[in-house]
Design a binder for these strands. Structure first.
Length: 186
DNA sequence: CACGCGATTCGCT
DNA sequence: GCGAATCGCGTGT
């Protein structure tokens, strides 16, 4: 169980700590689990790459709420992005970019329409499809409910780089991943 | 109220 | 490697 207080530190400190943790998704009878192997930090209103940079809007208002809340939004009209808000008053969030399947592999394969094993959950839009995550989770506490994060194994080595896919704020190294893991994107 | 585009993915040229 | 898919948000008229 990941306590809400875990997310009160700023996103750039929370993100690397979450590597190795488990996303736990309960769908009716089944439970699907995945180990977080890649994650990015967005630092809120101080961060040009963040949705919160230009102030509070209808979409990002959750980031101005409190830490430890699920924030999901639709990207390119097709893909859901799974975030958790982080930091006291910092309007930050972490974006889960890739997981390694741990439990419920059959369900994951059923939800994803690809053959290659390593393409099942190696991207932010892929893992939300695999884990049936959409905007209905918005505002829920990540430490309870049908979608939560649980403490997993301790990761021995963490690498970092610039964030992927954004146009502003690329220079800062706010992407963290487990080197060598096959599910890390690109 | 119209318009441009994005924290992406997949299939095909 | 390139481009289409697809839609809600944010901005400006």
């Amino acid at each position: 169980m990941m306590e809400k207080e875990f997310f009160e530190e700023s996103a750039d400190r929370v993100a690397p700590e979450l590597l190795g943790s488990l996303i736990v998704r309960k769908t009716g009878q089944e439970t699907v689990k995945g180990k977080i192997v890649e994650i990015e930090a967005y630092l809120g209103k101080e961060d040009p790459g963040s949705h919160a940079f230009n102030g509070k809007t209808d979409r990002n208002k959750l980031m101005f709420d409190t830490y430890g809340k699920i924030y999901v939004y639709l990207c390119y009209g097709l893909h859901h992005m799974f975030n958790v808000t982080a930091g006291i008053e910092s309007t930050g969030a972490v974006l889960v970019r890739a997981v390694e399947p741990v439990e419920g592999l059959e369900k994951i394969k059923e939800n994803r329409n690809v053959q290659d094993f390593y393409s099942l959950t190696d991207g932010p839009g892929k893992l939300t499809e695999a884990f049936e995550i959409d905007r209905s989770f918005n505002g829920e506490n990540v430490s309870e409910g049908d979608l939560r994060i649980e403490k997993g194994e301790t990761v021995e080595e963490v690498k970092k780089s610039g964030r992927i896919g954004i146009s502003r704020g690329k220079e800062r190294e706010l992407r963290f991943y487990i080197p060598g893991n096959r599910f890390v994107s690109s």
